[in-house]
């Protein structure tokens, strides 16, 4: 009797997500089979990456004669060398990094400042202003492209660093997400700081921001990833190739002479590696953040 009880609680479908269409006999083998199937599926999905990586190590001749072989005849690093020397990928990567870091830091500051006020302060027109901020999420980027170009041109910032980053210094999604986070924080610490004579900016900077660190990290990752991947805006606003981010650099790569597809693949690997590295370091924050963004629906 006692044994029976234990076995039903031990093997029973306590986790509804886990209980599948498997029969009783299969129940033990089923999770393993499912896992194997999914791993196989995932590897199939990652095949294009693998293929890109392999090709980036092939010599030009090897690539032309057997572009779809999964093993290079001789492994070479000259593709990377050419991508950096002829293709100037090093400059592009540095540009991407500079744009992404600038946008991330600036937007974190601007967004959190506004989000804090929307969450904690009361002032006339607050809700209407917040509504306006949210409304900007409905404006499609492709429609704003031409006027944005004209505005930046009037500011004299075409083909400049500032022209690339400035339009991304504030974002409705960031303000929304951080406001949500501030609303759920306890007010005690902020009240204590106020009693100690701390001003509004001091409370925001020294008390609220440190407490919002998890949200800031998640939003920062999002901003970095999306700015690194941004393509159409730098393509439009920049004309000087030495200012291109890596996305634009690679896309226009193919038109250059002396650049071959295996160099393009080497450059693509270089453009993806920082993101993949960042992803592995911080995937918990990233996945958690995506779950958050899905919940507002």
């Amino acid at each position: 009797m006692d044994r029976n009880d234990r076995s039903t609680t031990g093997n029973g479908p306590t986790d509804p997500l886990r209980a599948g269409p498997c029969g009783r006999a299969l129940r033990r083998a089923c999770p393993g089979l499912l896992l194997a199937f999914l791993v196989l599926l995932a590897l199939t999905m990652l095949f294009p990456f693998l293929w890109m990586a392999v090709n980036s190590f092939k010599t030009e001749e090897d690539f032309h004669t057997r572009p779809f072989a999964l093993w290079p005849e001789t492994w070479t690093l000259s593709t990377y060398e050419q991508a950096v020397t002829i293709g100037r990928v090093g400059i592009y990567l540095w540009n991407s990094f500079a744009y992404a870091v600038t946008v991330t830091l600036a937007q974190l500051f601007v967004d959190s400042l506004a989000a804090y006020a929307f969450a904690r302060m009361s002032f006339r027109g607050r809700d209407a202003l917040f509504g306006l901020v949210l409304a900007t999420m409905l404006l499609p980027a492709s429609v704003q492209l031409i006027p944005l170009f004209l505005i930046v041109k009037w500011m004299g910032l075409v083909n400049t660093f500032a022209g690339v980053v400035l339009p991304s210094f504030a974002g409705a999604f960031g303000i929304f997400m951080l406001r949500q986070f501030f609303l759920n924080l306890p007010r005690d610490l902020e009240d204590a700081a106020r009693i100690d004579g701390c001003g509004p900016f001091g409370i925001y900077w020294r008390v609220a921001l440190p407490m919002a660190r998890p949200a800031l990290v998640t939003l920062g990752l999002f901003l970095f990833l999306s700015e690194w991947g941004s393509f159409i805006w730098p393509l439009v606003i920049l004309s000087d190739t030495s200012r291109y981010p890596v996305t634009v650099g690679i896309a226009l790569f193919r038109n250059e002479s002396f650049i071959y597809w295996n160099n393009v693949f080497a450059a693509s690997v270089l453009a993806s590696l920082p993101l993949i590295g960042l992803f592995f370091v911080a995937q918990k924050h990233l996945m958690g953040g995506i779950s958050l963004s899905g919940l507002k629906g």
Binding site: D15, L17, R18, A19, G20, P31, L34, L35, L38, V39, A42, L43, M45, L46, P48, F49, W51, M52, L225, W228, G229, F231, V246, T247, V248, I250, A251, V264, F265, S268, A271, S272, L275, I276, F279, F280, Q283, L286, M287
Partner: peptide, 27 residues
């Protein structure tokens, strides 16, 4: 439905979506 190994599966399936669209289009 997977309990053990769910994290690694999520990671593998998620990888393409952090890669820049330009790179993916070229591949």
């Amino acid at each position: 439905k997977v309990r053990r190994g769910q994290g690694i599966l999520k990671t593998l399936f998620f990888l393409p979506s952090i890669t820049p669209m330009v790179v993916i289009a070229l591949i």
